[in-house]
C-alpha cells in the first residue's frame, strides 16, 4: 500500500512537472529572459524524467547515467538563471571552470557514469544554494521576481543534495528495498512540493499578466 501511494505520487509529480513546463512554454515569448531560462530548465528536466522512465520501464536497463545529465544541465541552466537575476558576471566565471573540471573527470574515469557522482552533485547543488541565498538577500529590499521559485529551489536543493550524495553509499549497504525507498520517497515528496511552488509562482505572477516590456 505504502509503495503504491508513493509510485502514484511519483507519476503525479512527473505529470505535474510536464504540466508546469507546458504552462511556462506556452507564454515563453511573452516574458523576460529569466522566465525563458526557467522554461528551458523545466523543459530539460522533463525530458530527462521522461528518459529515465523510458530507459527503466521500456528498455529495462539501468538509468543512473541520466542523473549526470540532470545535475549538469541543472547547474548550467540555473547558473544562467541566477546570472540574470543577480546581474553578476562572477557566476559565469565560476560556471566555466567547474564545468571544465567535471568534463575532465568524466574523460579521466568514464566509469563514473554508472555510479552516483556524489562530489559533482554536492558541489554544483551547493553553489546553486549559495546563489539562492544571495538572491533571497537581494529580495529583502522588495524585489520579487521569481521569489517563490527561488524559495522552492533553495528548499529542494538543500534537502536533495544529501539524498543524492548518499546514493552510492546506499547501493553498497546491505538493506532491503523498502528502506531504500524511504529516501527515494522523501525525495519524491520534496520534489512534489517544489512543483507546487513553481505552479504558485506561475499562477500568481504570470497568469493573465500583461507582459513586461
Amino acid at each position: 500500500m505504502d509503495f503504491n501511494f508513493f509510485s502514484l505520487l511519483n507519476v503525479f509529480t512527473i505529470t505535474f512537472l510536464i504540466f508546469n513546463t507546458f504552462l511556462f512554454l506556452k507564454s515563453f515569448i511573452k516574458f523576460g529572459r529569466a522566465f525563458k531560462v526557467l522554461s528551458c530548465y523545466l523543459f530539460f528536466v522533463s525530458l530527462i524524467q521522461l528518459a529515465t522512465i523510458f530507459v527503466a520501464k521500456i528498455l529495462h536497463k539501468p538509468n543512473l547515467f541520466l542523473s549526470h545529465f540532470y545535475f549538469i544541465s541543472q547547474f548550467i541552466i540555473l547558473s544562467i538563471f541566477y546570472r540574470i537575476l543577480l546581474k553578476n558576471k562572477f557566476i559565469l566565471y565560476l560556471l566555466l571552470p567547474i564545468f571544465g573540471v567535471l568534463t575532465y573527470q568524466y574523460i579521466d574515469d568514464p566509469d563514473i557514469f554508472f555510479r552516483y557522482h556524489a562530489i559533482g552533485i554536492s558541489i554544483t547543488q551547493s553553489i546553486l544554494i549559495v546563489y539562492a541565498i544571495v538572491y533571497l538577500y537581494r529580495c529583502l529590499q522588495g524585489e520579487n521576481l521569481f521569489l517563490i521559485v527561488n524559495v522552492g529551489l533553495f528548499l529542494y536543493l538543500v534537502s536533495s543534495t544529501l539524498i543524492f550524495a548518499s546514493g552510492n553509499l546506499i547501493f553498497n549497504l546491505n538493506i532491503s528495498d523498502s528502506m531504500n525507498f524511504l529516501l527515494i520517497n522523501t525525495n519524491r515528496i520534496l520534489y512534489f512540493l517544489f512543483q507546487i511552488l513553481i505552479f504558485i509562482e506561475w499562477r500568481k505572477n504570470y497568469y493573465k499578466k500583461i507582459p513586461k516590456s
Binding site: S159, I163, L183
Partner: peptide, 23 residues
C-alpha cells in the same frame, strides 16, 4: 545498515528545518 538511512533522513529533516527557518 538501516541506521545510516535513519541518520541521513534526520540530517535531511534538520537541514530542511533550518532552510525553512531561514526562509
Amino acid at each position: 545498515d538501516s541506521q545510516i538511512i535513519v541518520i541521513i533522513l534526520i540530517a535531511i529533516l534538520v537541514l530542511l528545518l533550518m532552510a525553512v527557518a531561514l526562509v
